[in-house]
Amino acid sequence: MADGRDLPATPEFVAACWTSAGDVMPLRGPDTSPLDVRTRIEAVARAGYTGFGLTHADLLVARETVGLPTVAQLLRDHGITTVQLERVVDWWTTGERKERSDALRQDLFDACAVLGVDNIKIGGDDDGEPVTYDALCAGFDALADAGREAGVRIAYENTPFSPPPIRTTEQAIDLVTDVGNANGGLMLDVWHAYRGGTPYDNLLRLAPERLFGVELDDGAAEVVGTQIEDTFDNRLFCGTGDFDVVSFVAVVRRLGWDGVWGIEHMSETDRKRPVETVLREAREAAALCIAQADERNAA
């Protein structure tokens, strides 16, 4: 690269939770994958990934069926070195909502030491209930502290359909920067950056140490249905849509990212196809975009 950094010869990838879950989507009836955790881990490894993601619901199923020590052994046996769990909301609230949020996060925390979790993804609420910026800052700081005690990093992922004051990636950058907790950072997803109208050069506002993960996908310029429906149903393989993933990756590289890349593929069409096929095609498409971005930066 032009800045002289040595990059991995072959990028490594995390299959974010929905990428290997098969024919299931959040907020649509059952929230657990029809595939057992062993099948998913095997498919992810055969498709060339070194990272694996699980939702809270699927973590509980795995815990109650095969047990977390067995899941940890499966991950080791299949060369999975990065584990990601999700998703905590309501961490800024009080009362019963906070109690439910704390119970969910404790399930995730309890799994961290067993599975060797790298980060837990969190986000804003999707029901549109307003919240103050100060409350979000205080809640994020407290959750990052709790994560440190549990031995796991907390990664905030913005969504354009969350209520104000944080929808855009710029606003999420402000949050992790203003809080300044070393254990709290940003999960940067090209989908949410594009849908939120973020010029990719604006990502350079983020301090490199606050970047905890990057997720790749692609999509059409126009939203189909609601923002949340579009997010769940219409993602495309990298390089096949309008998001200019190569330019996004080039900027992220300039920011200093040389870690594992997340693939978060959520497609109404592809979730009915064989999971391993979709995993492989998604990884290959992302790897091509990364290679093109690195070539551009090196020129």
Results as ranks from 00 to 15, higher is better:
Gly4Tyr: 05
Arg5Lys: 02
Arg5Cys: 08
Arg5Pro: 03
Pro8Ser: 11
Pro8Phe: 09
Thr10Glu: 14
Phe13Arg: 00
Val14Asp: 01
Asp23His: 02
Leu27Asn: 06
Asp31His: 05
Thr32Pro: 09
Leu35Asn: 08
Asp36Pro: 02
Ile41Asp: 01
Ile41His: 04
Val44Glu: 02
Ala45Val: 10
Ala47Ser: 04
Tyr49Met: 05
Tyr49Ile: 13
Leu59Arg: 00
Arg63Tyr: 07
Val66Met: 08
Pro69Val: 08
Ala72Asp: 03
Arg76Tyr: 01
Asp77Gln: 07
His78Ile: 13
Val83Tyr: 10
Glu86Leu: 02
Val88Pro: 05
Trp92Thr: 11
Arg97Asp: 15
Gln106Thr: 09
Asp107Gln: 03
Phe109Tyr: 15
Asp110His: 08
Ala113Val: 15
Val114Arg: 11
Gly123Ala: 13
Gly128Ser: 03
Glu129Ser: 13
Asp134Thr: 15
Leu136Tyr: 07
Ala138Ile: 15
Gly139Leu: 06
Gly139Cys: 11
Asp145Glu: 12
Arg148Asn: 10
Tyr156Asn: 05
Tyr156Thr: 10
Asn158Glu: 11
Ser162Phe: 14
Arg167Val: 12
Glu170Ala: 14
Gln171Ala: 14
Ile173Gln: 10
Asn183Phe: 10
Gly184Pro: 13
Asp189Ala: 02
Tyr194Ser: 07
Tyr194His: 07
Gly197Leu: 03
Pro199Asn: 00
Leu203Tyr: 09
Arg205Leu: 14
Val214Ala: 07
Asp217Thr: 03
Ala220Pro: 02
Ala221Trp: 10
Glu222Cys: 03
Thr226Asp: 07
Asp230Cys: 10
Phe232Leu: 14
Asn234Met: 04
Asp242Trp: 11
Val245His: 03
Val245Gly: 01
Phe248Pro: 02
Phe248Asn: 00
Val251Ser: 04
Arg254Ile: 10
Leu255Ser: 12
Gly256Val: 11
Gly256Thr: 09
Gly259Gln: 00
Gly262Pro: 09
Ile263Leu: 06
Glu264Ser: 04
Met266Gln: 02
Met266Asp: 00
Glu268Ala: 15
Asp270Lys: 08
Lys272Trp: 01
Arg280Val: 04
Glu284Asn: 03
Asp294Tyr: 00
Asn297Trp: 13
Ala299Lys: 14
